[in-house]
Computed example of a mutant assay.
Amino acid sequence: MTPAARIAAAIQILDRILAGDPAEPALLRWSRASRFAGSGDRAAVRDLVFDSLRRLRSRAALGGAMTGRGLMLGLCRDEGIEPSTIFTGEGHAPPPLAPAEQAVTAPGRVGERLDLPDWLLPLWQQSLGDEAEPVALALRDRAPVWLRVNLRRTTPEAAAAALDRDGIAVAPHAALASALRVTQGARRLASSAAYRDGLVELQDLSPQLACALLPAQGSLLDLCAGGGGKALALAARGAGLVVAHDIDPGRMADLPNRAERAGVRIRLAAPGGVSGRFDLVVADVPCSGSGTWRRTPDAKWRLTAADLARLQQTQAQILDQAAGFVAPGGHLAYMTCSLLNAENADQAGAFLSRNAHFSLLEQRRYSPLTASDGFFLALMRRC
């Protein structure tokens, strides 16, 4: 596919997303209907779509319309590409620009410039203060790829060497040697020997840093396990009995194979089937995902104020439920991948105000300015 044909494909997919389709299914449908597109074409079109979703409002302003065509025209102007070389109407290229599309506009409103919904701006600024603008701008760029070295299997140095043999270059984090940032060859990871043999797992830096602060001795319950990344990380650090639970067991479907590959043991609990007390309970609750909008940028534009209010109610309910599983003297780790105070410090503070037998030990918020994804941890102890 030519660059112009790739942009034409991205226009088609973006129009579907703007009409309400989630990004991943829209891309999958295009891919299945476009057998002529090679792997390089599919990757390039995906990058065009996701990059435009990260910068939706600013690109629409530059392109003069909130349409797939407007977004791709905005991309050309944003990246210094002469639109007339792309919008030619020749072959599979998009049609030439109409006279009304010749005028160049620029993002004027704050929400356009920061690529945020207008309704969210007050909460964003209140939560992040002086960092509100730089964090919003950082979320417009592609997220880095981070790996967690499985210390049960290998050392960071040996893992890096194994990855290098498969053409994957990495660099360790200065404060956490077991966290490796992929600097080259990220698309080779799934087929690499280091991944197949359980030497490394995909996990962003921010949750790695948060997990490093947790006590990993004794029994552990990962209450909202999802794919089980935190359960795997803590099991690799030496946690005893590790139980993973999720209200949607399908999210944990790959966890047994991942645990076997990693050389750790994790017991899966059926939905609502958790009992007993644990030395550490991890509650990585459903949230806005505002810290991960680089990875799921369409979620930024689907979130509403009503959604956020419902999520806060769910978070409070899960926190109270999780507290009942914490053994005396044990720890409760409240986590989100959000940057909003309403889901983070405010939620932890409200929990502590209604649960006097818990005390706060540690509270951290990570962002693209300090780590990688936006992430929050409140570590509490039961008296």
Rank of each mutant, 00 (worst) to 15 (best):
M1N: 00
P3Y: 04
I11R: 11
Q12E: 15
D15A: 07
R16W: 01
P22Y: 14
A23H: 01
L27K: 14
A37M: 11
G40E: 10
D41C: 11
A43M: 10
V45L: 15
V49W: 04
F50L: 06
D51Y: 00
L56D: 05
R59S: 09
R59K: 07
A60I: 10
G63E: 02
G64E: 10
L73F: 01
G74P: 15
L75H: 08
C76T: 00
E79G: 12
E79T: 11
E79W: 15
P83M: 11
G89R: 10
H92N: 10
P95L: 12
E101D: 05
V104N: 00
G108H: 11
G111F: 01
L116M: 09
D118V: 11
L121R: 01
S127K: 11
D130F: 03
P134F: 09
A138P: 14
A138S: 09
L139M: 15
R140F: 04
D141K: 08
P156L: 08
A161P: 09
R165N: 08
A169H: 03
Q184D: 12
G185R: 08
A186S: 08
L189H: 04
A194W: 05
D197N: 13
G198L: 09
L205K: 12
P207D: 00
A210E: 05
L220E: 00
G226A: 05
L234F: 04
H245N: 04
P249S: 04
G250S: 10
P256F: 01
A259F: 11
I266Y: 02
L268F: 05
P271M: 12
A283D: 13
A283S: 06
G289N: 06
T292S: 01
P297N: 08
D298S: 12
A299D: 06
W301N: 03
T304M: 09
T314R: 14
I318K: 15
A323D: 13
G324N: 07
L332C: 05
A333R: 13
T336P: 00
T336N: 10
N341G: 06
G349T: 14
S353E: 13
R354D: 03
Y366S: 05
A371C: 06
D373S: 00
M380H: 04
M380K: 03
M380V: 04
R382S: 06
